[in-house]
Design a protein around this nucleic acid. Structure first.
Lengths: 141, 141
DNA sequence: CCATAATCGGAGTATATAGTCCGAATTAAA
DNA sequence: TTTAATTCGGACTATATACTCCGATTATGG
């Protein structure tokens, strides 16, 4: 195991969303194809993407030549949106040393130093939209 | 569950070490006392501290009025030292999106943005020594 | 010397997360 | 209209981590 900031499920969700953005012009993308190209489990990425369908982040289409597509304008979809849906915002709220009482009034030894780093992480995810990673349409023809 | 950067075990180790530094002048501190004051499991913090004894971070003393003490000058002990012993350095090396191929040659979408944040985290831990949190000796008498 | 209080070591249990499997529903294409 | 390819839902298994328990060992202090 050992992820950095997010759960595996969240990492896969982010990878999957970015993959969908990159391949947006191809229409429906099956879990099979995503799994193959990202080299992860088909059933697991499938389940993970299904959970994002409920939140209108992606659309799913059953049946032959079905698959997943982005549900919204990728410009309006930040990586933070996905993180908050899957992992919640505890990573941006909890004490990095795990002290339950840590806060402005009773700060842990690294509370003040961690604050700006956490904010930078948050802003990075907030300012990074899925659209930034689409291929420029037509550039390759 | 849901920690921020480190495993629970690592969080407890950091909390325990800082507690030992704060109470350094009291001599041996039992796992029982640490657990009570930090409100965590005695057996678990005990095991965690035991694993740090091997690495000469802390000393243990069996028998009546035994317990744990810091093994080194707290000035020469950074939080990073403890993190590396318990969790290793994968948190400072791995891709934040979990992409195994991510690197300078094949960067993930947030690779360049994450680098400085990761370095800041690392430096924060490296520059924070356990000694900074000892009470100033004599100041309270 | 004895009772007590502590770590140590090993083994075990609990829980959350990760990942699998299968059958049903659905849909497009042949 | 049939077949094949797909998501969907639920239940299941696997694994890593968190946490507990107990008996042995050790040492202090009365």
């Amino acid at each position: 195991m050992m992820t950095v900031l997010f759960s595996r499920k969240c990492e896969y969700a982010l990878q999957g969303i970015l993959y969908l953005a990159e391949n947006q012009f191809k229409g429906n993308i099956s879990a099979e194809q995503i799994a193959t190209d990202l080299d992860i489990s088909r059933d697991f990425i499938s389940k993970t993407l299904q959970s994002l369908v409920k939140d209108d982040i992606i659309q799913s289409h059953r049946g032959k030549s079905g698959g997943f597509t982005l549900a919204k304008d990728p410009d309006s979809m930040s990586l933070l949106d996905i993180v908050l849906i899957i992992d919640g915002n505890s990573v941006f709220e909890s004490c990095v040393l795990g002290l339950p009482t840590c806060g402005a009034d009773s700060p842990c030894p690294v509370h003040d130093k961690w604050g700006p780093i956490r904010e930078a992480s948050r802003k990075m995810l907030e300012n990074t939209t899925v659209a930034q990673f689409q291929p420029i349409t037509g550039s390759e023809y």
